[in-house]
Amino acid sequence: MRDNAEQVRVLIERWAEAVHQGRLDTVVADHAEDIVMFDVPPPYRGVRGADAYREVWPDFFAWQAQGAAFDIEELEVTAGQDVAFAHALVRCGTEDELTSHPELRLRLTLGLRREAGRWVVAHEHHSFPDLSSP
């Protein structure tokens, strides 16, 4: 199982680097055709399907190009033979946002499955903590 966990870790790290660099083809490459993503911005019922997943990234890349960070700080992976899950904390924000809230981290959860001998992300969830409460 260790090899599976390492394969998943490499996949996620490659994905995060592609997000950071704005490389759309690599960002979407290891995702299932029926991907479901729950993201911070709408749509509130989630993004469903590979085409819809691809469509959300250009706006994020435009925001990130203004100098925002996207760096995995912690990553935990659990993998079996056919399914895996991972959770991570990601330093994600503009310099001003991260200066105002230095502990702010994007929470990332991924569910993966093996398809045709390779790992694909079937579920992706992003969230930030609610900063309106003390």
Score class of each variant (00 low, 15 high):
residue 17 E to F: 00
residue 20 H to T: 05
residue 35 I to N: 03
residue 41 P to V: 11
residue 21 Q to Y: 03
residue 31 H to S: 11
residue 19 V to H: 01
residue 28 V to W: 04
residue 14 R to D: 15
residue 16 A to W: 01
residue 24 L to R: 06
residue 36 V to H: 13
residue 43 P to A: 08
residue 26 T to M: 13
residue 45 R to W: 07
residue 42 P to L: 06
residue 42 P to Y: 07
residue 22 G to K: 01
residue 40 V to S: 02
residue 34 D to A: 11
residue 27 V to G: 04
residue 42 P to Q: 10
residue 42 P to F: 04
residue 14 R to M: 08
residue 34 D to N: 14
residue 32 A to V: 08
residue 22 G to R: 01
residue 32 A to S: 15
residue 44 Y to I: 12
residue 41 P to F: 06
residue 15 W to F: 13
residue 35 I to R: 03
residue 44 Y to T: 13
residue 40 V to A: 03
residue 14 R to V: 12
residue 21 Q to H: 12
residue 31 H to L: 05
residue 20 H to N: 14
residue 25 D to A: 15
residue 13 E to M: 14
residue 35 I to V: 14
residue 25 D to I: 12
residue 13 E to S: 09
residue 13 E to Q: 12
residue 26 T to F: 10
residue 38 F to S: 05
residue 37 M to W: 09
residue 31 H to N: 09
residue 18 A to Q: 02
residue 33 E to P: 10
residue 33 E to S: 14
residue 25 D to N: 14
residue 39 D to E: 11
residue 35 I to W: 06
residue 45 R to K: 13
residue 29 A to I: 06
residue 37 M to S: 15
residue 38 F to G: 02
residue 21 Q to D: 14
residue 21 Q to G: 12
residue 30 D to N: 11
residue 23 R to T: 10
residue 45 R to F: 09
residue 29 A to Y: 06
residue 15 W to T: 02
residue 38 F to P: 03
residue 40 V to Q: 01
residue 37 M to D: 05
residue 13 E to Y: 06
residue 32 A to P: 11
residue 18 A to F: 03
residue 44 Y to H: 12
residue 27 V to E: 05
residue 32 A to L: 06
residue 25 D to K: 09
residue 34 D to G: 08
residue 29 A to G: 10
residue 12 I to E: 01
residue 41 P to Q: 08
residue 29 A to P: 10
residue 13 E to T: 08
residue 25 D to E: 15
residue 13 E to I: 07
residue 28 V to D: 04
residue 32 A to C: 11
residue 14 R to I: 09
residue 23 R to Q: 15
residue 26 T to A: 15
residue 14 R to A: 15
residue 42 P to W: 04
residue 24 L to G: 09
residue 41 P to G: 07
residue 25 D to C: 11
residue 15 W to L: 04
residue 17 E to D: 12
residue 16 A to V: 02
residue 19 V to G: 01
residue 30 D to Y: 02
residue 33 E to Y: 07
residue 36 V to Q: 11
residue 22 G to M: 04
residue 25 D to S: 15
residue 45 R to P: 12
residue 32 A to K: 08
residue 40 V to Y: 00
residue 43 P to I: 07
residue 31 H to V: 05
residue 32 A to Q: 09
residue 18 A to K: 00
residue 22 G to F: 03
residue 44 Y to W: 13
residue 31 H to D: 10
residue 27 V to D: 04
residue 18 A to N: 03
residue 19 V to E: 00
residue 21 Q to L: 14
residue 17 E to V: 00
residue 24 L to A: 11
residue 18 A to L: 06
residue 43 P to N: 11
residue 41 P to H: 06
residue 44 Y to F: 12
residue 19 V to P: 02
